[in-house]
Nucleic acid binder design. Structure first.
Lengths: 116, 116
DNA sequence: GGAAGACATTGATGAATGTAAATATTTACG
DNA sequence: CGTAAATATTTACATTCATCAATGTCTTCC
């Protein structure tokens, strides 16, 4: 176990935005998660994976959904994976990504949670 | 009324990420909202305003919460305002910002909404 | 009207970001 | 083994971004 929190661990640590002021360190932990989501391509990638049958999708399927180069899609997937929003599993030649729905729920609770 | 949607209007338009694949145009409408939130300073600003008594806060209070120049805070507030996350009202010499909690709730529903 | 205070805008700069081309790595299959 | 296919990494580049210093605008009060 590491002392460094992944962004996804960081988001489970604090009260909703509207409940009490976010601390500086908490904000610095959470911002990378939002930054990972704050791109149209990555938003669609997350949605494609999360809504895909079985909760996972193969990179081969994802590449075809965009008019972007394969390295670019790979780059975006890496960012989502390193943020902790996507799990990665290699099966044979193919790589499957799976959405961490718990992370999405925690993030949603932080953003939209009740004030009191 | 304009044909151009503000980011905050754009977020009310679609099913949760995990329910069905986000369209390209929807993703391009929502990403700016997340980008506006995806900064530690702006996250804290949103939280400070949203959790402040009365749901609003004066810029004078906000400036003191950071070790950043006044123009920098003004810049971040403008970004949050243009994204539609903060309302702006001038009263005398002071300017008050108010959190659009509905926008935050819509965004949370989009991110963390049930798959089915 | 002039000075002071609150906030916004402009201009400049270094850092981070999205993308693609080229290349590398890994796996399967003959 | 050697070739093909799937995915990742490296390198390079143009764009965007966060920040500050300087300046501008607007309001209040003397």
């Amino acid at each position: 176990m590491s002392l460094e929190l992944t962004p996804v661990q960081a988001v489970a640590c604090c009260a909703p935005l509207a409940r009490e002021p976010l601390s500086e360190s908490d904000a610095e932990g959470i911002a990378p998660l939002l930054k990972a989501l704050a791109d149209p391509v990555r938003l669609r990638l997350m949605s494609l994976v999360a809504s895909h049958q079985g909760g996972e999708a193969c990179v081969c399927d994802l590449n075809d959904a965009f008019e972007l180069s394969q390295p670019t899609i790979s780059h975006h997937l890496k960012i989502l994976h390193e943020a902790g929003l996507l799990d990665r599993e290699k099966r044979g030649v193919w790589v499957y990504y799976r959405a961490r729905t718990g992370a999405l729920r925690n993030l949603a609770a932080l953003i939209g949670g009740q004030a009191a």
